[in-house]
């Protein structure tokens, strides 16, 4: 086992241990914090595929997070009011079932990622950042100005959605769902990085000309990566909405996109567990420093600066050393 694999195992174990201990000591708030870490980490794991592996700095991943959130919100809203989403040409009812909501969230965010990606990936560098940001803002203002689903006020969902065989209202059981989802996203992302696709995508980050010279279309690789990435972040968005039992336009905001990027930089760009460590640290700081000062983000800024200047591989890089080229 490499040092990084050991570290990753320890992180995963810690993320499970904290809420389990909290469960037995009767501390549900800590479980909620751990759940939040798992969900936000998953969103950033999705982003890390395009940002870390593909080298595309998407400043609009909140779009997919929000799409996931509103997929949950809209479906559950209709279910709790017993109003069908549409009646003609065929009947579509709302639902409170998590698996169906996740499926809708994943498919919708993948489709939106396909459209945004098809346009944005034609550009690169700063233009790519700007165009993804612009899409993010478009969705944000659209959500604000669409009164049917709460507009600016957001959309409350009164009872958490259901999962067959589990009581999702029990914090530790809901945590288990998000933990497994995060684990699955990490597993997929690890396999993807080592696959044929991953090798070629990683090469486009380093040298797109090289990839095209061996007859592989870099645009297609990036677009497919963007779709996979958006789908994972969308899934996380649906879970996040279920955690809060509330959906609001802020899920689409550029601050949200920025936070995902911050998680990745803190943890280590392109490192499998970078987003997990980054999200964990961010939530811890928010929790502890947020109590000390309203301006706690200043400290996050200082830490971010230190990481960028002194630990280019992020926390994972600082603890596990430079990335080993695989195999």
């Amino acid at each position: 086992m490499t040092r990084e694999a050991l570290l990753n195992t320890a992180i995963m174990a810690l993320l499970a241990a904290v809420p389990i201990i909290a469960h037995f000591t009767g501390n549900p708030f800590t479980i909620t914090l751990a759940t939040k870490v798992a969900i936000l980490a998953m969103a950033a794991v999705g982003l890390n595929i395009v940002l870390g592996l593909g080298g595309l700095v998407s400043f609009g991943h909140a779009v997919f997070f929000g799409i996931g959130g509103y997929s949950m919100g809209i479906l559950a809203h209709h279910a709790q009011l017993f109003i069908p989403i549409m009646e003609a040409p065929f009947l579509i009812d709302g639902t409170k079932s998590m698996p169906i909501i996740w499926l809708v969230a994943v498919i919708t965010s993948a489709l939106v990622a396909l459209v945004i990606g098809a346009l944005a990936i034609r550009t690169s560098g700063v233009y790519f950042i700007m165009i993804t940001l612009a899409f993010g803002q478009m969705f944000y203002y659209f959500a604000i100005s669409w009164p049917a689903y709460g507009g600016e006020d957001g959309l409350p969902i009164y009872v958490r959605n259901s999962f067959p065989g589990l009581n999702t209202l029990d914090p530790i059981q809901f945590f288990a769902i998000t933990y497994v989802a995060l684990g699955a996203a990490l597993f997929l992302s690890a396999r993807l990085a080592r696959s044929r696709f991953g090798l070629a995508l990683g090469a486009t980050r380093q040298n797109a000309e090289r990839v095209e010279t061996v007859g592989v279309d870099a645009y297609r690789l990036r677009l497919v990566a963007f779709v996979i990435s958006g789908a994972i972040t969308g899934f996380a968005g649906a879970l996040f909405a279920d955690l809060n039992r509330f959906v609001a336009p802020t899920m689409f905001s550029w601050q949200m996109s920025g936070e995902f990027i911050v998680f990745i930089i803190l943890g280590g760009i392109g490192r499998l567990f970078g987003p997990v460590v980054g999200a964990g640290l961010f939530i811890l700081l928010e929790h502890f420093l947020g109590g000390v000062s309203d301006y706690w983000l200043i400290y996050v800024g200082a830490i971010l600066l230190a990481v960028v200047l002194f630990a280019r591989g992020g926390l994972i890089g600082a603890l596990a050393g430079r990335e080993v080229a695989h195999d």
Partner: peptide, 16 residues
């Protein structure tokens, strides 16, 4: 891999 063409494979380790 470029010569082989099957670049859209996401699961099996390429270095094996």
């Amino acid at each position: 891999l470029g010569r082989d063409g099957g670049v859209m494979r996401f699961f099996k380790p390429v270095m094996k």
